[in-house]
Design a protein around this nucleic acid. Structure first.
Length: 437
RNA sequence: GGCCCUAUCGUCUAUCGGUUAGGACACAAGCUUUUCAAGCUUGGAAGCGGGGUUCGACUCCCCGUAGGGUCACCA
């Protein structure tokens, strides 16, 4: 059974790159019927915090990436100690006297006795990779017997946890020969490696907190109102393709079609526009009632008595890519027509070359048509369109829409009537007619 | 700089020696409920350069070039 692990270090919030690597591990485990271990690599006590750990855990939970086991390296010190002792004993590591050049550096650390050899390993994505470890020197594997460093702890854990596949970011590829050396020293089996390509920014650089600020944190996407499944869908497509032309996937579908074969070798640039599009596609697939609950909750913050009917829900969905767009619509007054009487300007009521007299006549006519119209967009349209087409669509539809919304830009008049209801619409049309008298 | 990785439209990608180099996002134009948005239709847009191998290379090999990653008592 394949056993994979994701090993984030809690020295920062959940990064989108970490999230994507976790996704690939998760998908691989699911697809192959394997086992997925999450291992918090908190051997750096200076930089690791519980807050970051919680942020990572909560972020993965939000995304829906579940793991079978959770471990913390800080709770496994005794295991590392025994390995360090063993290595010291058999000569594969030694205590090295140092001259501390910086503050905080020890005068004594534990170094690995580098056999200085060529290492060739197979990578599922890149094929054979060769390194000469001579350039690595006798690298430090522990600050002291009780304080293991990354390479040692990672190799010991991968061995103890019987990890079969190490799926990680390409930035770890040059760490691999070091780790293989340690594996050989402790008699561990070599896992199969898969180094997945990195995510780059528009400048083709690794996404970093320093340069991109909060855009690298998963939390940001949660706060922006992206659907977790859409984020996952986008991450999957960033560096992997299913071999078909399908682009919209649920997490479950991804677990069924994922394969390492489809993973790209070259880095991919993060494109927020495509993420937005994918999010919208997922929004369209959402259960209308679930969607209604979200929209209603947001709209009610500003208009407590709001009721989100089908038509209002429809035009809202048409206008948003993420849920935070609803907040923008609210603050830009795009919902105002629904909750308050519009302020009308006489000049704006008249379409291009039309006259006040004709406009008034058209509105009166529409008012008549509406007398026994049902509250349904399509029905209203079929009642009003023949007249509009007869006398000029702009001459009728523009003043009607403006009378209802009081805005130069708004949804179409038929939807507006359906949303407002016949009575309220009639009242607004009447006000416009009075303005023209 | 050493070592390592990578190289098809602006972006994500298909092509696993023979294609008018396909799709998606974005962009442009047109259409529709003469606004906005959405939707639909159409369009522009790519094989880094040079050598090989081959009847035939985007595809395989080599050399350049470019970009990236990594070189901690961080992970």
């Amino acid at each position: 059974m394949p056993i994979v692990r994701m090993a984030p270090s809690p020295t920062g919030n959940l990064h989108i790159g970490t999230a994507r690597t976790t996704l690939f591990n998760y998908l691989f485990a699911k697809k192959t019927g394997g086992y997925f271990i999450l291992r918090i690599e908190d051997t750096d006590t200076e930089r690791s915090t519980k807050e970051y750990e919680n942020n990572i855990l909560n972020g993965l939970k939000w995304l829906g990436l579940e793991y079978n086991e959770l471990h913390r390296q800080s709770e496994r010190t005794s295991t590392y100690v025994s390995y360090v002792r063993k290595m010291l004993h058999d000569g594969s590591a030694y205590i090295s006297k140092e001259e501390p050049k910086e503050e905080g550096k020890r005068s004594e650390v534990i170094r690995f006795k580098n056999p200085n050899k060529k290492i060739v390993f197979k990578d599922l994505i890149r094929g054979e990779v060769e390194f000469d470890t001579t350039d690595l020197g006798d690298f430090v594997i522990a600050k002291s017997v009780e304080e293991p460093l990354y390479h040692l702890a990672a190799v010991v854990d991968d061995h103890e946890m019987k990890i079969t596949h190490v799926i990680r970011g390409e930035d770890h590829i040059s760490n691999t020969p070091r780790q293989i050396l340690i594996q050989e020293a402790i008699g561990a089996e070599r896992p199969i490696y898969a180094h997945i390509p990195l995510i780059f920014d528009k400048e083709r650089k690794k996404l970093s907190k320093r340069k991109h600020g909060s855009a690298v944190w998963i939390d940001t996407y949660k706060e922006e109102g992206y659907l977790p499944e859409a984020v996952l869908n986008y991450f999957a497509l960033l560096g992997w393709n299913p071999g078909t032309e399908q682009e919209i996937f649920t997490l479950k579908e991804l677990t069924e079609v994922f394969s390492m074969e489809g993973v790209q070798k070259s880095p991919a640039i993060f494109d927020i526009e495509k993420l937005k599009w994918i999010n919208k596609e997922h929004l369209k697939k959402m259960d209308p009632n679930d969607l209604r609950i979200v929209v209603e909750e947001k709209v009610k913050e500003k208009f407590p008595n709001a009721i989100i009917g089908d038509d209002l829900l429809r035009i809202t969905l048409e206008r948003i890519y993420t849920f935070s767009d609803i907040d923008k619509m609210l603050s830009e007054g795009e919902f105002d027509f629904y909750f308050s009487e519009p302020e009308l300007l006489k000049d704006k009521l008249i379409w291009k070359e039309s006259t006040p007299k004709d406009t008034k006549k058209h509105l009166e006519k529409i008012s008549e048509f509406l007398l026994d119209a049902p509250q349904n967009t399509e029905a209203i349209k079929s009642i009003l369109m023949p007249y509009a087409e007869e006398v000029g669509k702009g001459n009728v539809l523009w003043p009607l829409r403006y009378a209802l919304s009081g805005k130069e830009k708004s949804p179409d008049p038929f939807s507006l009537i359906a949303i407002l209801g016949i009575d309220k619409s009639q009242a607004r049309i009447k006000r416009a007619i009075e303005l023209l008298s």
